[in-house]
Structures are given as C-alpha cells and as structure tokens.
Design a protein around this nucleic acid. Structure first.
Lengths: 145, 145
DNA sequence: GCGGTCAGTCTGGAATCCGGACTGACAATA
DNA sequence: TATTGTCAGTCCGGATTCCAGACTGACCGC
C-alpha cells in the first residue's frame, strides 16, 4: 500500500509568493519603486486599508524586502526603502505591468510610460543570459525535478 | 476646499493582480506551465484546499487565462490549458522563480533547473527591446503619469 | 459488487479583511 | 495659546475568505 500522499512541489515560485503573494504586498512594493515611500502616500495610491497596509509593511520589513528608515527626527518620520532583495523584485513588477498593459488595457493607452536609459520607450522582455534569445513558454525545458 | 480624496493610482500592476493576485492563482498557473493540467495533480502539487483551488480555476477561466478542455468523454475528464493571455504570464512566473532561487535558496540548490532552447542552463533577465540593455531598478524613468 | 480515480461540493470554525473612527506626536498658523 | 493640519499608525465590529477534511457522483477495471 504505497502512500504517495500530498508531496507539495518544492518550488521557488511558492517560496517567493510566501513573501510577496499577499494582496497588498506587491502593490506596496510597486509604490516604493515609484517613489512613494511614505505610509500616507501608499494608503492614498493603493487604496489599501491602513490596517492591512501597516501589517504588510511590517512583514516586508521582517522579510528583508523593505527597510524602514527615519528621515526626520522632529517630527519622527519614517520612510520605506528597498533593500537589495527588494530591488531584485523589479522584474516581477515590470512583468506584471507589461501583462496588464497588454491584456487589460485602459482607454487612452497605458497609464504609465517608462523610458529606458537608452532613451527609448521601454518595452522589456525576458531573454536568456547565454544566447540572448527570447525566453517564453516553450523555449525552456526542465532538466531536473 | 479642494478635495483631493483618495485617487487610487491607475496602474497595470494592480489590474493584473486583480486577476492573478490571489494566493493560489499563480501557483495554479505555475502548475499548468509545468504540465500539471489536471485538478488532482494541482491539488497534490500545490497543497491548496480543493475548495479554493476550484474557485481559483473558475475565475482564471472566466478571466481568459486558462481554458477548460475536455480530453475524455467517457469518463468525462477536463484539463486546464493556457490561453495566449495565460502564456504571456510566463515572464511573471520565471521572474518569481528566479527571485526565489536567489533570495530563498534551498540547501542542495534550486529545486528545478531549466534549460533554454540554446542548450544552456537558463538564467533569464529582463532586457530592453530597443537597446538590449539590462532592465533593472534605476534604468527606467517615468515619462508619463 | 468492490475498490479506485477524478473532479469537484459541502461544512463549520478560524483567520483575514474592510471602512472608518480614533490616537498621539508634532508643526504651522492665528 | 488655541486651532488646524500632517503623518503614521491602532482599534473596532462586522463581513468575507480560508481551511482541512468529509462527502458526492460519474465512471472504469476486475
């Protein structure tokens, strides 16, 4: 009687989502990327309940995605800044943004345009570090697990 | 008395998260990318409550990310396959995976290795379509909104 | 008929989420 | 000094979701 009970896949996607997978977490991170580092700004820009946002910021700090930095002593004021690990979430945010731009467009075009440092309107894509070729569904195969 | 009340940012990230931002949605999509297209497989591999997973699959189908396809009439069996819009989420999944590989590593290395069609172990990165340069935090600036 | 597979649905308690009111520290204005 | 405003939360009670696990129902193979 072989018992092959629920061995959940060990997967980096799941481990990442444990950190940023909650409803307002990525939106808070987006705000920091966009320069809104203060609690009040994030509340206004995301529409998150203050309550929930405070909790998310706390766990993001605990997980080393954000850092809380005091930028004024009198009055005491803190802002949230990205750690290195937080900055590494940039591709996640950009990928989500591009999907939304393409598949959930707004009348009047994308709500936000980004310009890459090369001077062109930014269209990002995932490429292979070795060959430079496009990475999309079907261009990769599993070689372990 | 100017009332600048809570104008939530119109943002493609938020619109995308409305579709895939719930706890088990992206994990279900990951499963389909990995070839687990059947309900039972997804339950086993993700560990999601059957209940919740059924609900997520329903909304993903409703949102045009997945498609339910009958692959057997007798007994009646359906599987879930990616639509074009679903396949376009590949960069999101890969970005999440790479973040997890780097910042939440497992002893013994990444649980899954991918090989790009060029034959090398896949390390994907976000690059600019115009110049081919790396896209990371600080390489883009907002030119609208 | 009996057990097994597949794809869910149902249940009831636990955990979260929500909008909005409130607090407390301070600054600026009157 | 009193009033108003900003900022960063906390607190509240009700509504919504989530969860593990039991159950259903359609089918197949033996």
């Amino acid at each position: 009687m072989a018992l092959a009970t629920a061995s959940v896949r060990a997967c980096s996607v799941a481990r990442t989502l444990e950190v940023v997978g909650e409803k307002w977490a990525l939106l808070a991170i987006r705000e920091v990327f966009l320069g809104a580092r203060k609690f009040e700004e994030m509340v206004a820009n995301t529409g998150a309940p203050r309550d929930t946002l405070a909790a998310r910021l706390k766990t993001l700090v605990a997980h080393g995605i954000l850092e809380r930095r005091r930028y004024s002593e009198r009055p005491p004021r803190d802002e949230y800044v990205l750690t290195d690990a937080g900055r590494d979430l940039y591709p996640v945010i950009i990928s989500l943004m591009q999907w939304g731009d393409r598949h959930r467009p707004l009348d009047g075009g994308p709500p936000m345009l980004l310009e890459h440092s090369c001077g062109h309107r930014m269209h990002a894509r995932l490429t292979c570090e070795s060959c430079g070729g496009l990475v999309e569904y079907g261009t990769a195969k599993r070689i372990r697990a």
